[in-house]
Structure formats: C-alpha cells, structure tokens
Design a protein around this nucleic acid. Structure first.
Length: 229
DNA sequence: TAGGCCATCTGGTCCT
DNA sequence: AGGACCAGATGGCCTA
C-alpha cells in the first residue's frame, strides 16, 4: 500500500542491470532468474557432454582421418579454453544464486514494510495521513501499547476499589511495562519528556486519547527515557 | 549542502 | 544445499 512504486524493480530489471555489468556473456533475451539458472544447468550439462570422446565420424579424405582420431569436437574449438569456461560457468552459477538471494531479500524487506504499514494503520497520527518513519512507528507502537495497558490497569483498579484484588487480568503494579522489556531492562518509561518524544521524533502527537494522557502523565520527568534512544 | 530516511545489494551465519 | 535472517555498505531522494 505505501510501498513506493519506483522501488519495486522487477527481478527482470534487476537482472538486466546486473547481467549487463557482471556477466561476461550477456544473453540477448534477458531470461528470468529461473530461466537463467536453467540455462546455466544446461551449460553444465553441455560441459559434461563435451567431456566424453567425440564421435569418431569418418569423413572422406585424409583430413577426415585426422578428425576421427582427434580429441576435439569440431564446432567446439571456438571460445575460451575449457578451464576458463568452467570458471566462467562457476561464476555464472554463483551470480545466479546471488540474484535469487537478492530477490528473496527484497521480498522479505517488502513483507517487513507491509507489516510496518499495517502497524501504522492502527496507530493514531496527526494529521491523519502523516507517515511515521520506521523507528517512529516502532517506538510509538511500543508506547501506545504500554499506555493502553496502563489505562486498562488503572481502570480495573478503580472499578475494584482500593484493595484492587482483581487486577489479575491486567498487569499488576510493578509488572514490567512493555518499555522495560523493550529497552532491555530499563525501568519503566520515564515519566515525561516532551509529549512529542512519545512518537520518537519531532512530530506533534495525535489527538490526546485517554491512553495518551496516561502516558504523558507517566512521562513527566525531565529526561529522555533510555528506551527512546 | 549536510543529514535523515530509505531501498537495495552483499556476504556471513544460522536453521531446516 | 538452500532459505531465512542479519548487519554493513552504498547510493538516491528529500528537507532544513
């Protein structure tokens, strides 16, 4: 949804680029990576086929005789020597695997970004269409969850009276806030830096929901919480 | 123009 | 062996 169009280079484009640069013998038809791999496997097979002695085709005349005992297939003599060709083939296979890995990595990152977009969708922002950066999204989500949790806890405590006997369903006082686990052990989110810090950046916060007001209250101290770093 | 953010490539490591 | 995951490097785009 929010994935930038220009970033979505197709594998074919990718290979076009890379084949042009990396491959010693760029194919004119620009195969997909699967096709390219197939082609490489074919090439490997061809290498193997070339290995056994050539068919002793007897050609008329003396020159034919010579070819009959010859070690080399006539049409195959062009091009690089065998060792070089083998190295080239290895290179091409390596290259092909790299391209496939690149594709997978790209897809993986796209999935990650899609998940991040989904997360953005459920986070309140102001203005509505403001796009949080990745780090802002993660920090805000973390804080938002923590604030909602606290809200639930306080609401539960209020409903149950001072002894608060039944806060079982919600985190008990002193239970690690999301922040503490997030930050790798730092104590609960520090009471308030400026509200915008909740969003991990210099953007204005969204509308002050109950949860956010809660969070603001918790964050009322003058230092930047470690989990914001 | 410097700095922030991002997408992509790449090689290494771990897992199945 | 092949795929997933990760972190570093690189280059493009955008904004103050």
């Amino acid at each position: 949804m929010l994935v930038k169009a220009e970033v979505l280079a197709t594998p074919a484009e990718d290979e076009l680029l890379l084949l042009g640069l990396g491959s010693p013998a760029p194919s004119p038809s620009l195969p997909s990576s699967a096709e390219e791999e197939e082609e490489e496997e074919e090439e490997e097979e061809e290498e193997l086929r070339a290995a056994p002695p050539a068919r002793p085709v007897e050609a008329p005349g003396g020159r034919g005789l010579r070819r009959a005992e010859g070690k080399r297939r006539p049409g195959r003599s062009r091009g690089a020597p065998r060792a070089a060709r083998t190295a080239e083939t290895a290179q091409r296979i390596k290259r092909s695997r790299r391209l496939k890995a690149n594709n997978r990595e790209r897809n993986r990152m796209h999935n990650l970004n899609a998940a991040l977009d989904a997360l953005r969708d459920v986070l309140p922002t102001f203005p509505e269409d403001a796009k949080l950066t990745k780090i802002e999204t993660l920090r805000f989500a973390h804080n938002y969850i923590w604030a909602l949790t606290e809200t639930l806890r306080l609401a539960g405590a209020a409903r149950l009276g001072p002894d608060g006997a039944a806060a079982a369903a919600v985190p008990a006082e002193g239970s690690p806030s999301p922040a503490s686990s997030w930050s790798g052990g730092a104590a609960s989110p520090a009471p308030s830096a400026s509200p915008r810090l909740i969003f991990g950046g210099d953007r204005e916060p969204p509308e002050p929901t109950a949860a956010k007001l809660e969070a603001d209250q918790e964050m009322r101290v003058g230092q930047t919480p470690p989990w914001m770093m």
